[in-house]
Amino acid sequence: MAGVKGSGLVQAQGFKLVQDPYSLNEYVAVKAVEPDWALIHVEKADREGNAVMWGSKYDDVLLAKASKKVIITCEQVVATEELQTRPEGTDIPGFLVQAVVEAPRGAWPCSCGQTYPFDSDFFQAYLTAAGSDQAYAKLMSQVLSGERGPVQ
């Protein structure tokens, strides 16, 4: 890739330099990352895992294509026929996906595209609690018991 040559990350992470055989320029080469699993939340998916994201994609499509296995969680499971009417709107093809879970508000406390915003109050509570093991454990138990969670 371009750039990064002057960064301390090259030595600290053991990145190697390679020569582009065409331009003869030297570039930093980073080893491919191959996660065992990618867990990606989307707006809509069918039972096969064909997944549709609205708005920002960040690195999620790349992540799905790099990972050995993919779990899609979604706001709503829809019929394949719905996606077949506009296949170019599908971001991740189902054959790369091992499992689909319908999980409304599943991105909480983060945002999900333009469907709902991030939960600012919860992040504030998290930031405060993260300063002590006790407060953090209490907050997490509230989350696990369902006392704190997404507004449905």
Partner: peptide, 18 residues
């Protein structure tokens, strides 16, 4: 919002440039 990775920043865009 306090985040600059927020969907509010998508309003009015005609394309997505990742």
């Amino acid at each position: 919002t306090s985040s600059t990775a927020d969907p509010v920043l998508l309003r009015g865009t005609a394309s997505i440039f990742t």
